[in-house]
Design a protein around this nucleic acid. Structure first.
Lengths: 343, 343
DNA sequence: AAAAAAAATACAAACGTTTGTATTATTGTA
DNA sequence: TACAATAATACAAACGTTTGTATTTTTTTT
């Protein structure tokens, strides 16, 4: 108690056994170059003395930290956490740890975080660009320095040296809107997010494409690009949108689960019946929509799997030999429509 | 392109400028021992050559990694994520990064993760024990090795060498139940979680204490200790509980927001009116309850603040000099009751 | 202009590993 | 018993910093 023990190191074991540090190191590594009896002596002495290898020293010597840097735009969005879970689950199998940072939806913070990743703490980076990220020079810079990278979600501009994990947002929303149309809905509202975000642009495209294909008139009044980055304001923005509609929709396609829920909440408040008068579809499917009454029909995005795949691609890159040029992979995962009570 | 650049190191700058490595190091540190003109030369050369310090080497040399290890029982619980956000927000101000791991509700994994924290990768640890954690020897071991620790949430047994950040679960639930009683409710159901979890034990105690104090009869039939660790089963367990009640409650005190929501969902399904026939209170308050219709009255737990405080305590410990014995801090944060539509 | 004081810089050890090469000890062979 | 072949171990450099001490250079003082 009180007095802090000095860490035991290889040298301590070596001295105690009157052998060299190198032999101790190799013994602990189960290297066949050391005699079995020596190895046993080392192993038991290491245990006895409570030896714990120093990860930092190992990393310095080996040039590998076994840490994956993960940069997400924000913590408080279940989608990103779910992706992180997927990354973690895959990474731990290969003895990697993950260091999560948030760029807080800001291009500046994204750059700042990447710089700290450049300092050799991480072996590679998995990143979801912010909506502010137009220029990807900072990403290329990191890649040029030999730090492998995998991008997921909201990839506005392709980065030549990085792998990508995505879904087909346009197709997914096309399918969702088509589903509403086939149910006979004709006045379908669209609730999107900030326009700069690639995923919202694509989901909007899919919405428009579906309406066009089925010759459904497009009402600008039924389209909302929700601008609030703050939870609190989204709420009001959406309620007010539905309060002041000139024509009334018989369906709503919302670009996130949260928008879907807020939509349902607004509609209920106004006294609309779901799904009888208005159908609602959300996007994401991370548990939220399932709890609500009525439960929310969703485009199910394989978030967890996206994380797993991103980790897999990154670890593959980490295992590639340095002199072979990396062959870029773009992975598009499948979405599906999960039907629930809201349609 | 293609050819990977070798990292620039101090030596490269030193050689280029024909000065020693030590001087370069000190120049970059703005150490007054180096002449201004030299410092300027070094700074500009460093910039020119794209120098980026090697964090690992720094850590080895300084014995500090500036990383805080965070161990939570699971990722997919907003409470823990919110705490992590708080930790991150405080930690980044002091130039610490956080390395999050999940013990996946398992004592074994908790131990396993702590061992990896013992390898010198982190300067200190913030941890929320799993419900399986009865024995805290593994925690004490880490502390004895000189790794500072802060515990939060679900602290079953106090750990002498660690700081604690908690709320008063018993008092909070007492207050919540008292609130229901004062509203005239007399048959108040209790929905708790796995009994081994300290927080649930305490919330149960508070519930019982409130009933006793106001001489309200305690019906065992109205008490459920939800056993499912899995989201999917909780759902069914709670619905089935409410379906088969012999007496009907006029209020429900649920030990988490999620239980609160599932309770409301079940009640609505059965056709009960909330709050007219049954009032519901949840515990946590992380956004979920606000969206639901009707919105859920909650005990608001200051999750984000818990994280901030935990980080603060840990960083304080990290700054304490080694030979002064640490004075343990136990912090109890305030909860409050947030009234919404469900009561 | 020489000596002392101060400023600037260089040297070298340390942080705890890994790993290629050199050395020593042990075996087997003639 | 001497010699090679092999097995086991030791030595030392490397990873990229930091930092205490020694050395050199510059400035000040007389």
């Amino acid at each position: 108690m009180g007095l802090k023990k000095r860490r035991v190191k290889l040298e301590d074991i070596a001295r105690k056994l009157n052998i060299s540090i190198a032999t101790v190191s190799r013994a602990l590594d189960e290297n066949p170059r050391v005699k079995l009896s020596t190895r046993e002596k080392v192993l038991s002495m290491a245990k006895l003395m409570g030896y714990m290898p120093n990860q930092i020293a190992k990393s310095l010597s080996s040039g590998k930290t076994n840490i994956i840097g993960v940069l997400i735009p924000r913590y408080d969005e279940p989608f990103f956490i779910e992706v992180c879970r997927g990354i973690d689950q895959y990474a731990r199998r290969y003895n990697y740890k993950i260091l999560i940072s948030s760029s807080r939806n800001s291009y500046e913070f994204e750059k700042e975080n990447l710089i700290s990743f450049e300092k050799g703490l991480v072996d590679g980076v998995i990143l979801s660009p912010t909506h502010e990220t137009e220029n990807v020079a900072h990403l290329n810079e990191l890649i040029d320095k030999g730090i492998p990278m995998v991008l997921f979600d909201n990839i506005r501009e392709e980065v030549s040296g990085a792998d990508h994990v995505m879904i087909d947002d346009e197709k997914a929303s096309f399918t969702a809107v088509e589903f509403l149309i086939k149910k006979g809905r004709k006045k379908i509202a669209f609730i999107g997010g900030i326009k700069q975000k690639k995923v919202f642009q694509d989901r909007y495209k899919g919405y428009i494409a579906a309406l066009r294909q089925y010759n459904i008139p497009i009402y600008d009044e039924l389209i909302l690009h929700c601008n609030s980055l703050d939870r609190e304001f989204e709420d009001k923005e959406i309620l007010s949108f539905f309060r002041h509609l000139p024509i009334y929709p018989d369906a709503v396609f919302a670009c996130t689960d949260n928008y879907g829920l807020l939509t349902m909440k607004s509609l209920l408040k106004i006294g609309k019946k779901i799904p009888e008068e208005v159908s609602v579809i959300g996007f994401g499917d991370l548990g939220l929509g399932e709890v609500f009454v009525p439960s929310l029909t969703c485009v199910s995005q394989p978030s967890f799997e996206m994380g797993q795949k991103a980790a897999e691609l990154l670890i593959n890159q980490l295992n590639e030999s340095d002199d072979v040029d990396h062959k870029k992979t773009i992975l598009r995962l499948e979405t599906k429509l999960t039907q629930r009570e809201s349609t």
